[in-house]
Write a protein that binds this DNA or RNA. Structure first.
Length: 660
DNA sequence: TTTATATGTCATAAT
DNA sequence: CTATTATGACATATA
């Protein structure tokens, strides 16, 4: 996205505000934008206003062009966040954000955030239909931890001690208590605002038609989290997006002339006003939804089951809330979510995450002085690392890329840019299979963000480039034809060193390394799948990666084992052959001995016959007679014909010789 | 280009 | 029943 201005560059407040309003979000006059969001909106609105149809091609894969203007704006905005490389949202991020919205905004504002569907408006209070699954937050064992997350923030805000009401709110949510009667208290305190939201949550259950939403499966919330363009209410990604976009509390919409509104928005405004879901623009920009505060209060809830916050993690936010100079607070505010998320991730997964990652991000969060040009360049570089095009020129390449990316993400949106950067650079990739290598990458990356801190040399590793010509996997089967792989090789793809699964994981922005996925214990693996906000496609890919990875190891072991068996058999053959030779030699020796014995016996025989004499004193011919031993030890001279016929006892000569 | 070998992957059975 | 392992068969990569 060429036009993306650097962080903290300011501007874009009006555009974002209008865009949010267009999307049905009511914006506080004090709403301020983080520079990326401002820049994003500055870019989005002109593009959207000038070429909604053509530009929409990049996210038209979702179909329905009969959507309302706010849907279009919302979809377009989210799409562009996609293009930024935001891979996914840990599931609790938006849930917790909702909690903070409850704590910070009034009911109307919260409703504006949660949804503007006519069906919802028909009900008592607005309720989100596609906004993820906030119910799970309060009906799972995780709910208590959500409360832990929300509690300190409420304490910060409500110095009069009413912050603890949030816990009550959360409990009442699950109880389905109707607080619509407390609308009058909205202006009195945060908690009252929050309570008035509860019917919306209650209605949501009716809208989704899930009476027993405790049994709601994770996959359902995943599906709900996807971008449903036909759905007028905001999804979790939407909410997260706005959370992402809101952190700079100093701009205001006051005094902005209507002429500044792009023509498209004006027309959209008309159409919106004429639609069933009217948006009162004056109302839209006057409600007290302070996204900045919401941002401040929920930055540590990027995952479904956040670990209890440490005092170390809370402290920055306490300080931030006390800041009067938002200029100084902005960097920390915007970056701290990443920081907290990282810490929580490490606590939750307990898996191969080096604290250096967090240190690097902490350093980055401390950086306050950025060179816009450098940062812009860095963002572009990082984006190029991620393989996603930030080019806003909408050439065919970028559109194609956006299309494919959008299709792949399948609704997985909402994540801090830094988070995506971290994962882009370190989470996936066989080139950096070891955690410390990931950290190394992060450090090098982060150094570009705060060169003032002494890291002058910026290294950019483009190992993770995806060649535009390489078709990205677009189906669950991830059929990788030989042809495409040859093309990949011919193009000298820097990702060539990556395994196919690593490339797939990178393409889908899987926030874990392949090694992690494969070697992770099954419990951690399952908890990871349920804790993180992953699309079905991502989950499927992760499971396939795990299966293939384990099978690969099994195949290697099997082959090794087979080879060992073969080698052992060869050794056995050799040993047997040696033994055979020895036996042959032994047999030869025995045969030789036998022959010697035979010869001796023959000689003895001849010798005996030479001493024999018949009755006439003539020598006995050994050719005609044989010696035969009788049972009593006597030796008889028997004619051979009798010996061969078996008549041993019949001695024609009747001659019995005594043994000499 | 062909061939041999190594490696990855899938299906299936076994654990 | 699920997850993992083992293994034959096939596909692909590489020397």
């Amino acid at each position: 996205m060429k036009l993306l201005k650097p962080w903290w560059a300011g501007g874009g407040l009006l555009n974002l505000t209008l865009l949010l309003s267009l999307a049905g979000l009511r914006v506080d006059l004090d709403l301020c934008l983080p520079p990326p969001a401002a820049a994003l909106c500055e870019e989005l609105l002109p593009l959207y206003s000038t070429r909604p149809a053509s530009a929409s091609s990049s996210f038209s894969a979702s179909g329905d062009w009969g959507r309302s203007p706010q849907q279009l704006a919302k979809g377009w905005l989210l799409h562009e966040v996609h293009a930024l490389g935001v891979p996914f949202i840990p599931r609790t991020s938006v849930d917790a954000w909702l909690v903070h919205s409850v704590a910070t905004g009034d009911a109307d504002g919260a409703h504006g955030l949660l949804g503007t569907s006519s069906a919802v408006e028909d009900s008592d209070q607005a309720a989100p239909t596609g906004g993820g699954d906030p119910r799970e937050t309060h009906n799972s064992p995780l709910a208590t931890e959500e409360e832990k997350v929300a509690e300190p923030t409420a304490q910060v805000r409500d110095t009069d001690g009413r912050g603890s009401q949030e816990n009550d709110i959360l409990k009442e949510k699950s109880d389905g208590v109707d607080h619509s009667s407390q609308h009058e208290e909205n202006e009195e305190g945060v908690s009252a605002h929050a309570k008035s939201l509860q019917p919306a949550r209650k209605d949501e259950n009716h809208v989704t038609g899930a009476p027993d939403w405790e049994a709601e499966h994770i996959t359902e919330s995943r599906n709900e989290s996807h971008l449903h363009w036909s759905n007028t209410s905001f999804s979790l990604e939407d909410l997260y997006l706005f959370q992402l976009l809101s952190s700079q509390p100093e701009h205001s919409l006051e005094g902005i002339p209507l002429e500044d509104i792009p023509p498209f928005l004006s027309s959209v405004n008309e159409s919106v006003n004429s639609s069933a879901r009217n948006i009162n623009w004056s109302h839209a920009i006057s409600h007290d939804v302070n996204l900045h505060e919401a941002m401040l209060l929920c930055p540590n809830t990027f995952i479904k089951d956040p670990a209890p916050r440490t005092s170390q993690a809370q402290e920055p936010f306490l300080q931030l809330n006390s800041h009067t100079n938002s200029e100084q607070a902005v960097p920390e505010m915007s970056l701290s979510p990443v920081d907290n998320q990282m810490n929580i991730t490490s606590q939750d997964l307990l898996y191969d995450l080096d604290s250096n990652i967090f240190d690097g991000i902490n350093l980055m969060s401390l950086a306050t002085n950025f060179s816009p040009l450098e940062v812009t360049q860095h963002i572009e570089d990082l984006d190029s690392d991620s393989g996603l095009s930030l080019n806003s020129s909408y050439d065919s390449t970028s559109i194609t890329k956006s299309n494919s990316s959008h299709g792949i993400y399948d609704g997985a949106v909402g994540y801090s840019e830094l988070q995506s950067l971290r994962y882009d650079l370190g989470a996936v990739g066989g080139c950096y299979p070891e955690p410390h290598k990931h950290c190394h990458m992060d450090y090098r990356t982060m150094s570009g963000f705060h060169q003032d801190l002494g890291c002058q040399q910026v290294f950019h590793d483009h190992t993770y480039h995806l060649q535009p010509g390489v078709p990205e996997p677009t189906s669950e089967s991830f059929t990788w034809s030989r042809k495409s792989q040859k093309i990949t090789g011919c193009l000298e793809n820097p990702d060539r060193n990556l395994s196919r699964d690593e490339q797939r994981a990178k393409a889908l922005h899987i926030p874990f390394t392949v090694d992690e996925i494969i070697q992770m214990p099954v419990d951690s693996f399952n908890s990871m799948l349920s804790r993180y906000y992953l699309t079905d496609l991502q989950v499927s890919l992760i499971r396939d990666i795990r299966r293939r990875g384990k099978n690969k190891v099994a195949a290697q072991n099997c082959r090794k084992r087979k080879l060992d068996i073969i080698l052992n058999l060869e050794d056995d053959i050799c040993n047997l052959q040696t033994k055979k030779e020895a036996l042959k030699s032994e047999q030869a020796q025995y045969n030789k001995a036998i022959n010697i014995m035979k010869q001796k016996l023959h000689d003895l025989y001849r010798n005996v016959f030479s001493m024999l004499r018949d009755d006439q004193g003539r020598p006995v011919n050994p050719n005609h007679y044989a010696l035969q031993y009788s049972h009593d030890g006597s030796v008889l001279i028997v004619p051979k014909e009798l010996v061969t016929s078996g008549h041993t006892n019949k001695c024609p000569k009747g001659k019995r010789e005594r043994k000499n």
